[in-house]
């Protein structure tokens, strides 16, 4: 580590109280600001396994059956978020399709026949109700489409704990780091200024007790009367 790095690291931590103060202020401000504007988000989830009807499965071998089911996963994902299914949910729960589209996440697990569907809202009861309605409407829709069905692996459930409950810790942590960084920057600026104004001996005061004779830059100095 060179001298300049050492100098700036020393300056950065030169006033620990300032770092601690800014850290506490920024962390406190962030915590209270976040707490006042905090809107909990709850999530309800369901896990389904897609299968094709037995009557078709009997006609093809097991590998073709699995392959067909995997292809059907993509179809079901699209159907679950289709207008017809969502309009059914809208009718039952009174939540507009536009809001539903933004709240529903359908995740087809690659190379499997499993689909995970989740809905995020500001109430766990509402999330569960919407998901149950989605399950019901999707199942009804698939009944109309001959050959595809699904089995529910995990019944719809919703956590009572908001999924964003730890966000304040992350933001408060970032505010702590920001406070330290800001305090360090202020320390460097103040430190440099103090060094310029007060320090008469560079090199950490090594020459403090010596006879010091400073000379400014000489580039423009001219002497009249000396003709070389």
């Amino acid at each position: 580590m060179n001298e300049i790095s050492k100098k700036y690291i020393k300056l950065f931590f030169s006033r620990i109280w300032l770092l601690a103060l800014l850290m506490a202020v920024s962390a406190g401000a962030t915590y209270f600001a976040y707490k006042n504007s905090f809107e909990p988000i709850y999530e309800a989830r369901i896990k389904m396994m897609i299968a094709i009807n037995d009557k078709y499965a009997n006609e093809v071998n097991i590998f073709d059956s699995i392959r067909s089911s995997q292809m059907a996963v993509v179809d079901v994902s699209q159907i679950a978020s289709s207008e017809e299914v969502l309009s059914g949910v809208e009718k039952e729960c009174g939540i507009s399709q536009h809001v539903l589209e933004n709240s529903i996440t359908i995740n087809a697990i690659p190379n499997s026949r499993i689909i995970e569907a989740s809905i995020q809202t500001y109430s766990p009861e509402l999330a569960l109700m919407l998901l149950q309605s989605l399950d019901k409407n999707l199942y009804a829709k698939l009944q109309e489409i001959d050959g595809i069905t699904y089995k529910v692996l995990n019944r719809p459930y919703a956590d009572a704990t908001p999924i964003n409950s730890n966000e304040y810790l992350i933001f408060t942590g970032l505010a702590v780091l920001g406070g330290i960084f800001l305090g360090g920057l202020i320390n460097i600026v103040i430190g440099e200024s103090v060094l310029v104004n007060k320090s008469i001996t560079p090199f950490d005061g090594f020459f403090e007790n010596e006879n010091i004779l400073p000379v400014p830059a000489s580039k423009k100095a001219k002497v009249e009367g000396v003709k070389l």
């Binding site: 310029v196 104004n197 320090s199 008469i200 001996t201 560079p202 020459f207 010596e210 006879n211 010091i212 004779l213 400073p214 000379v215 400014p216 830059a217 000489s218």
Partner: peptide
């Protein structure tokens, strides 16, 4: 003594 070349003007005036 020690000659600090290229010193800042403030330091020169101060010393």
């Amino acid at each position: 003594g020690v000659i600090f070349n290229n010193a800042g003007k403030r330091i020169v005036r101060k010393i």
